[in-house]
Design a protein around this nucleic acid. Structure first.
Lengths: 159, 159
DNA sequence: CAAATAGTTTAGCCTTAGCTAACAATGTTG
DNA sequence: CAACATTGTTAGCTAAGGCTAAACTATTTG
């Protein structure tokens, strides 16, 4: 299986055969991703609710459902979870609001999202693509990388 | 109550530059992420099996389990799925092998993974962090962005 | 103000991806 | 070659995150 794939070989610390990492490190990589997946959806909801509150003044289940392209029943169930996690407060049939903890999470998510999105735009990615990629990437970018992305964006901007 | 609220967002004005995207676009973002999540794990397994075959000559369930930090039962169940999807062939109690389709998927995943990983390294992210981030990000990076990352890495390298 | 419409919730179903425990096959070695 | 250790499989459980259909609440409007 000699690869003639043009994308497979790049230079740098190691090329093609980047050896397998030691088991513990490898396991850590996957575990981190699995962990991110658990909080990801929660963060997306909280972030969206925050955005709706900011830009629309209220956050209704129906809006969340259509913006997430998901059924209202799914949203309703999720809101119960967010309630249990004490991230939102809700009275039945009324708009949602974020608790302290929810607001904090929304802010962090929003900031992270914006850094990734602006970084991608700065790199030259088309806006619509950048939005999609940012939505997927944001939960998997470490603080270290995030800081580097932000610095990069600022530097480019000032040129 | 259908008010289109004036712009009275609380604070952090410059960071909150972005208005909400139109509903369809927003929905598309989330749908794309959900979709990626469905194939993500599959790709991770196939990629890992490919790596084990390349670097070790065989891919045993026990290795996969320890490298993914997951129980053997989970791996066993997953292998059945990969079989049904005709991505791997397996005889009970024997090493796994990739089908044509599996090999193709492994190559693509590996290439994508490497591009993201090398891009992060080139940006200046520490190796261990880059590995973790790459593992999470790789499934959410569009071809467009991938191409840009690769070009960026090459340019930096030649300086 | 009653009826229609819009929004929300609940019930019940499905699939995925984990887990443990018990069992089966294979491989190693005294 | 029998016993033990390792590896793999199966059964059965859980939780998350989807769905549809039906019931309920709120709002708008004739």
């Amino acid at each position: 299986m000699t690869d003639s794939n043009p994308t497979a070989s790049l230079s740098a610390p190691s090329i093609h055969g980047d050896a397998l990492p030691p088991v513990e490190q490898h396991a850590q990589q996957y575990a981190t991703v699995r962990n991110a997946h658990e909080t990801e959806l929660i963060e997306d909801y909280v972030e969206l609710i925050g955005d709706l509150l900011t830009h629309r003044g209220e956050a209704r289940a129906a809006d969340i459902a259509s913006r997430m392209a998901v059924s209202q029943a799914t949203v309703s169930k999720m809101i119960r979870r967010l309630n249990e996690l004490e991230l939102v407060t809700s009275k039945p049939y009324r708009s949602l609001f974020l608790t302290e903890a929810g607001q904090k999470m929304a802010e962090i998510s929003r900031a992270r999202h914006d850094i990734v999105l602006n970084f991608l735009r700065t790199l030259g990615v088309r806006d619509s693509t950048a939005r999609i990629d940012a939505e997927g990437m944001e939960h998997h970018v470490s603080d270290e990388t995030l800081a580097i992305m932000q610095r990069f964006t600022e530097q480019q901007q000032s040129n």
